[in-house]
């Protein structure tokens, strides 16, 4: 994707207009060399606007970046972390869900099992991946790989970028709820360390099903929420135009969730978002994972399990009379 120009988002329009002005002036530069100063001035303005734009983002803007169609997906990370990574397929019970990608990655210091949700890139891809919404079989495929990792003492890295679990008829008949619940249950009992990264959208139980980890990291512009902001707006406000309000109310951005103490680290993105530079995004995430594994791999299996259970045991906000 680095060969393609990033497609601008709605809130990036002013920036886009400025860029077009600069381009127009540059085209006339040959005939009118005196324009060079104007161009420099506009360039400066452009850089200033760019920086201020991305440091004052509304939660809704983060959501848009998180959902950017050029956002790097699980495979983009896996192949940059290890160009020889090996993909493993199937739940062994009748299906291979393309919305859940699993495999083996050599991170350098550590050999790891990777599990990640996958949105499609082309329309055909998107449809096959159900737009990143796994079926129960996808969660069971992930579980198979969790067990594989534990058997061979390999750490697990998960990537989360999903609107949620797929709401379909067959998905319900094949017990979507149970598939998610069992993953939560089994992840809490593993004796190998798990690091989860929310790279795009962390949508509800369907995201958490691969997100119960010793360390949970989020990319700077990623979001994580109990329900989609669209769902929240339509249920609580009974209005489809209250999405920005729902985004703000739920506190779903990486920074806010870190402040609430629910996640461990925010990983910075290239200016404008991860889609501006896949290689840098992959390098940033890899560095963050290795740093976490350096600590986690020093723990015994029993301590890893105790650590993950303690982590989630503590989450909650209540008062006691």
């Amino acid at each position: 994707m680095t060969d393609k120009k990033p497609v601008p988002l709605e809130f990036e329009q002013p920036l886009q207009m400025l860029a077009q002005q600069i381009e127009a002036l540059e085209n006339q530069l040959q005939d009118q060399p005196e324009l060079a100063d104007d161009i420099d001035r506009l360039q400066e303005q452009y850089e200033k606007l760019r920086r201020s734009l991305y440091s004052n983002l509304d939660p809704r803007d983060h959501l848009q970046i998180a959902r950017h169609p050029q956002r790097p997906y699980s495979r983009d990370y896996f192949e940059r972390w290890d160009e020889n990574w090996v993909e493993l397929h199937g739940d062994r019970k009748g299906m291979d869900d393309p919305a859940m990608v699993t495999g083996l990655v050599d991170l350098g210091p550590y050999r790891v099992v990777v599990v990640g949700t996958q949105k499609g890139r082309s329309l055909r891809d998107k449809q096959q991946c159900n737009f990143g919404m796994p079926q129960p079989e996808g969660y069971r495929k992930a579980l198979r790989l969790f067990k594989h990792a534990e058997k061979f003492g390999l750490p697990i890295i998960t990537i989360i970028d999903t609107p949620g679990a797929y709401p379909g008829m067959a998905a319900e008949e094949h017990n979507q709820a149970e598939a998610i619940a069992v993953n939560l249950f089994e992840l809490a009992g593993l004796k190998v360390p798990v690091v989860a990264i929310v790279t795009g959208e962390g949508g509800s139980g369907g995201a958490l099903a691969v997100g119960v980890a010793n360390k949970v990291l989020m990319l700077e512009h990623s979001v994580y929420s109990v329900i989609s902001p669209e769902g929240c707006a339509s249920i609580l406000w009974r209005a489809n135009d209250k999405v920005a309000e729902a985004c703000r109310a739920m506190k779903m951005t990486a920074k806010e969730i870190k402040e609430l103490g629910v996640i461990d680290e925010v990983i910075p993105e290239p200016l404008g978002g991860a889609h501006h530079d896949y290689d840098v995004s992959a390098a940033n995430t890899k560095k963050a994972i290795i740093k976490q594994l350096d600590n986690l791999t020093k723990m015994s299996g029993a301590d890893v399990r105790a650590d993950i259970q303690k982590k989630f045991r503590q989450i909650g906000a209540f008062v006691e009379d």
Partner: peptide
Amino acid sequence: GARMQEGIFSLMQLAKTSSALKD
């Protein structure tokens, strides 16, 4: 289901309860 008004805290109760049941 989960209570929207407690956002991410509600979501994490899924993991918290399932983890206790594992023990």
